[in-house]
């Protein structure tokens, strides 16, 4: 019905077949249009949020890089970018290190209280961000972490760990435990076994978990809005303020750069997924 029209299809079936495709096309358009439209708009030579007649006429004068220039020279945006890039990698490191260890523990057949522990460790992903942010704001101000770099890093690391656990656990499902026993049998101690046998095999899962953790921290705005002080103003925070107060077209340039980052991440993840499946002897699909 969906893949191809049989030669004996009636007129009604034909009509439905094509109108279904048109409907799906419209929905795909709805999905992708808002993401793509900001790219040409960000090259606008005027401070407008819509296409100018010059742009529609494809006149080169209608386009310019001035919003990008503003992004790379404006101190507000530059410090925001710097903050984002100094918070996200550290949070990712915490989340990946703790998350990978925990995932290995959780995948062992005789892990006690597995489902309860799993539920607790996944909870930062389930609890609405506004509630996490509120709780962290109350608690971190008690212990003096509110408004500090470390406070934001710890909070982002906590939010990122569930993604690491999920991706690493998924790679470990196909992991052959007899490899570990074989290594031990040949005289390797557990640490060597881990780094020489287990790690290379689960590495794609660990890296994609780390990417998820990175993007969680990099995109996160609610928690940092409450926990951070002006010195931790990140890129999403700056965008949020920009959108709420005086919306400037520089935001479109930033958004375009972020879309480029997402495309790069998506491609990396897809390549990692294929590699992981090949390592585990599955056919990529």
């Amino acid at each position: 019905m969906a893949s191809a029209l049989p030669p004996y299809a009636s007129a009604g079936q034909r009509a439905w077949f094509y109108s279904f495709r048109v409907i799906c096309g419209l929905i795909f358009f709805f999905l992708i249009f808002p993401v793509l439209i900001i790219i040409p708009l960000s090259f606008n030579a005027e401070d407008f949020f819509t296409f100018t007649p010059k742009m529609l006429a494809l006149d080169p004068e209608g386009y310019s890089l001035k919003h990008y220039r503003d992004f790379f020279t404006n101190p507000d945006w530059q410090s925001a970018m710097w903050n984002s890039f100094s918070i996200a990698p550290v949070a990712t490191l915490f989340a990946t290190a703790f998350g990978t260890l925990a995932a290995i523990g959780l995948s062992q057949s005789n892990m006690p209280f597995r489902s309860a522990v799993m539920a607790l460790l996944i909870s930062p992903m389930i609890v609405p961000l506004i509630i996490s942010a509120a709780g962290m704001y109350f608690f971190y101000s008690r212990i003096g972490l509110q408004g500090t770099y470390m406070g934001v890093v710890l909070a982002h690391a906590a939010l990122g760990t569930p993604f690491v656990i999920i991706t690493v656990t998924a790679t470990l499902v196909g992991f052959d435990q007899s490899l570990v026993r074989a290594a031990a049998n040949l005289g390797a101690d557990p640490v060597t076994t881990f780094f020489k046998v287990q790690m290379p095999l689960i590495l794609p899962g660990v890296v994609s978990g780390a990417l998820f953790a990175f993007i969680t921290s990099f995109d996160e705005v609610v928690v940092v809005l409450f926990l951070g002080s002006a010195a931790q103003k990140t890129l999403p925070w700056q965008m949020f303020t920009g959108l709420r107060e005086q919306i400037s077209p520089t935001i479109l340039a930033v958004a375009t750069l972020l879309v480029a980052i997402s495309i790069a991440l998506l491609t990396t993840l897809e390549l990692l997924r294929r590699r992981s499946e090949r390592l585990r002897g599955m056919t990529p699909g």
């Binding site: 260890l101 925990a102 523990g105 892990m111 608690f139």
Partner: peptide
Amino acid sequence: RAFLLVTPLLLFILITFTAPI
């Protein structure tokens, strides 16, 4: 051993996330 592997993260989440809630 399985539990010890999970412990660091468990403590981390308990302090940074569960305690705030």
